[in-house]
Design a protein around this nucleic acid. Structure first.
Lengths: 116, 116
DNA sequence: TGTTTCGTCAACCGATTGGTTGAATATGCG
DNA sequence: CGCATATTCAACCAATCGGTTGACGAAACA
């Protein structure tokens, strides 16, 4: 996966819209046809279709056409990448400071045998 | 918090830009003045100032003015909220540390080649 | 004091976004 | 076949985005 940054652009931009996040939530429960995805929203089917295209390009969902119905399926892999990226910032700093303090303690402590 | 959705809008939109993510990476290491944040980028100080405003409104950083210098500090809490939201899609297991570590290696190791 | 440094503001620009509508393209059905 | 259903396409729109430049205020310093 060479250009992670461009992928993160697309994934985060896809997530930065409440309609699209709502669609992802719906797809958590089950795969859905485009028309059924659109049903709860007060906007045109074409608008939902565009949202689904954006989610697909982000890799967050996949779409498979069976007959005249296009089924939408959640694809959590892209989400995992972004989540991992965010965990880096969510945990790095506090963990780091904490670990650093402990490190200093163990370094300065007399006869500190390492445990884990 | 019922209007967490609006906050997620702002946080994800803030993250959906490589310049802003790069700024967050820089602030991982230490707090920085606005001018120093801007220095590696090939764009105007005003542009960076706007990016910092967006990051601040997202709660991802905070800014404190001391003298005529405005210091920028990473605030990982907002990121953690968004990360928690994403784990709501955790049909998959929560972010495993293997992936996290591997990510940090690939992301932070070649930081020296982060020329611009 | 006058000047330099730090950072924002205001106005502007082109590109993108999120939505609309109406027409078009498939596919399934009686 | 003819018609309804499912979905996208194309054109358009207002609003927002990411950037620029120049002017500006506030703090430090000679």
């Amino acid at each position: 996966m060479p250009d992670m940054s461009a992928q993160l652009d697309i994934v985060f931009a896809a997530l930065a819209d409440p309609t699209r996040r709502s669609i992802l939530s719906m797809l958590l429960e089950d795969d859905m046809a485009v028309t059924d995805v659109a049903e709860p929203f007060e906007m045109s089917l074409a608008a939902i279709s565009k949202h689904l295209t954006i989610l697909t390009r982000a890799g967050l969902i996949s779409q498979e056409k069976r007959g005249r119905v296009k089924w939408c399926k959640l694809e959590p892999d892209a989400l995992r990448d972004a989540s991992v990226w965010m965990q880096g910032f969510g945990q790095f700093e506090p963990v780091n400071l904490d670990a650093f303090e402990k490190f200093l303690e163990t370094q300065l402590a007399p006869a500190a045998s390492d445990s884990d």
